[in-house]
Amino acid sequence: MSGKAKVVLTDYVWESLDVEHRTLEGIADLIPFKAAAPAEFLEQAADCDALLNTYAGPITAEVIGQMPRCKVIARYGIGVDTIDLAAATEAGIIVTNNPTYCVDEVAEHAMALMLSAARKIAFYDRRVRSGEWAVPPGKPMTRLAGKTLGLVGFGNIARKVAARAAAFDMRVVFSDPFVESGQFTVPGEKQELDAVLEQADFLSVHPPLTTATRGLIGDAAFARMKPSSILINVARGPIVDTAALVRALDAGRIAGCALDTTDPEPLPNPHPLRGRENVIITPHAAWYSEEAMVGLQSGAPSEVRRVLSGEWPINVVNPAVKGRNRAGL
């Protein structure tokens, strides 16, 4: 090993690490893994200066305790629910994420799922592929214009969805305890969560996964929704209580759902959500585009380079660590 810093990459799903090597050139050596769990990379991470992380986890307090030199944990994606932020902060480790690389992609995917559910695209495609050519099996369908889109959470992605939905002449309401009414210029009327649930023809969930939001959409939420409503999830699977969702579909409490994220994930086969005509599932693909890949791959290594160069990183998710961290920043 050289006198340069040591950066461990826990896992990655792209073909080349050229971006990482270029970004860290001259300042750090990269040790890449394709790990599924910390046990697979911890031996090398024990003396690392930085950790790059995609999916492998969770990065618990115990894991953090075994990386005494680590100055920064940089997530390639947006969510940091797999990292114990309190433990990282206590240890003096800066944690960063990559909050904007796929905002447009996920918003587009949410709209695509909404349109597919409303127009029954997947349903009709399956029928045509099987040799059938008929409109009546898909009845009833109604137009999107004039319908109400309810957004749970009103962050970057949700606001992009709101703007797109408004272009379809939809009414937008949202619930978000961290956003004030009128704070943003995009369409959307702030309401309490129960009111959003009761009014939404389409309910799209967008909060981060936290202790407070885990299972947020469960039996009580489904009981308030219209029987004609469609649930959309492009955020995190555990925000929706899967067992409660299955019960709601079985009982006809909602009309269907369109999911890019599930709990568990990948969704087992067989599973009660699979094979239903009123359920659309994509394999956590909302984040992806060729353009997003560029931002995804460069974001986390750039944050690591900043920290190792003595600069405060851009997207810090535990700001309380400033002034009391191992990097001395």
Rank of each mutant, 00 (worst) to 15 (best):
V196E: 14
P68F: 13
P140N: 09
T148A: 12
Y101I: 09
G188S: 01
E265Y: 10
L24R: 10
I78W: 11
M141N: 04
R306Y: 01
V186A: 07
P99E: 15
N53A: 08
F184M: 03
N278L: 02
A88G: 09
L259Y: 15
G79M: 10
A122I: 07
V279H: 14
G237M: 06
H109I: 00
L308S: 03
A37Y: 10
G252P: 07
R143N: 02
A35P: 01
G218W: 06
V304D: 00
A285C: 04
L216M: 14
A158M: 10
A145D: 06
E108H: 01
S302W: 02
E192I: 04
N325E: 05
A200T: 03
E132T: 00
E108P: 14
A45H: 08
D201Q: 01
F222W: 11
V316P: 01
T261N: 02
E198D: 08
F154M: 11
I31N: 06
K190P: 08
D104V: 13
R247H: 15
T89W: 12
P177V: 05
V304S: 08
Y288M: 00
A91L: 02
A163C: 09
R22G: 01
G252Q: 02
L259D: 15
E265T: 12
G215F: 09
A244Q: 07
A300K: 00
C257T: 05
